[in-house]
Computed example of a mutant assay.
Amino acid sequence: MLVLLPPSETKATGGDGAPLELERLSHPELNPVRDKLVDALVELASDVPAALAALGLSQRQADEVARNAELRRSPTTPALHRYTGVLYDALDVAGMTGAERSRAAGRLAVASALFGVVGGADPIPAYRLSGGSALPSTGPLGPLWRPALEPVLAGVDDFVVDLRSGPYASLARVPHAVVVRVVTEDGAGRRKAVSHFNKAHKGLLARAIARSRSEPGTVRGLVRLAAAAGLRLEPVTATALDLVVA
């Protein structure tokens, strides 16, 4: 199976891996777009005010621009260790056993504005680029990514579970994926999408998938796996599931 996670704006600094080599990332057919965007971010970083404006950052976040300037020279670390924040705290790769980390690396992938999609073990540097950004030299990311990324994801011959957030889902459609929505339910059975704790519950689901020795290949199998982890996952349609939380 393949689980598509959203990235995070926050990322761990440093790393002990060699500088970025696009050839070491999953799906090398995406490298022409990756290369173009890396060059665009490095070039943009030479004009700090313009970079802050394009990336939607404040002056206090100028260190993010400095990170982008070093994209081709800074150290790398596996993607599941690079991303931080609420979802990745709940995923807690560092707290997994070696076997669980191996399964996480094989089953989990991260949607990325810069790299399209990366495997959990792919070595990447720290960077700043959001799915809704538009760079001066490339324009909006959707028209740039969709022609390259959609065929790659459409060609994944696996059970695909889509946990991406809106800006990243818009970069590429995955028609055969099962989309998970995090919702609450009131006493009358009415459901409402969760915003604040959305990422945490997606992280818990991804953790359950990584820790399970069995690998579900169907919606029914995924629902059973979630239930075993204490998560209430319910089919809504053939390609949509609700993760119901208290």
Rank of each mutant, 00 (worst) to 15 (best):
A126D: 06
S137E: 07
L129Y: 09
S137Q: 05
P78I: 08
R101F: 01
A111S: 09
R128S: 08
S58R: 12
A90R: 11
P136M: 02
L91I: 06
S137N: 05
L135N: 08
R128Y: 06
A50R: 15
T84W: 00
R128H: 10
T84K: 04
R67C: 14
A51P: 13
T84G: 08
P78D: 03
D89T: 13
P140L: 12
A148G: 02
S58N: 14
M96F: 09
L87E: 03
P125H: 03
A94I: 08
S133F: 13
R101I: 06
T76G: 06
V65H: 11
A134L: 01
S137C: 05
Y127T: 05
R72G: 02
R146K: 03
A113C: 08
L87V: 04
E100L: 07
T138S: 01
S133H: 09
L55Q: 05
H81I: 11
E70V: 11
V86F: 08
L114F: 05
D122F: 14
G56W: 01
T76A: 09
P143Y: 00
G119T: 09
M96Q: 11
S112A: 07
L144H: 03
A66T: 13
D47A: 14
D89R: 12
L141P: 04
I124V: 10
A54W: 05
D63W: 14
A113R: 01
D47L: 13
R67L: 14
A90Q: 12
L129C: 05
D122V: 12
R101K: 09
P147W: 06
S46Y: 15
Y127F: 01
A62G: 10
V93H: 00
R67M: 12
G139H: 06
T84E: 11
G106Y: 14
E150M: 04
R146I: 10
L141S: 09
S58L: 12
V86C: 04
D122R: 15
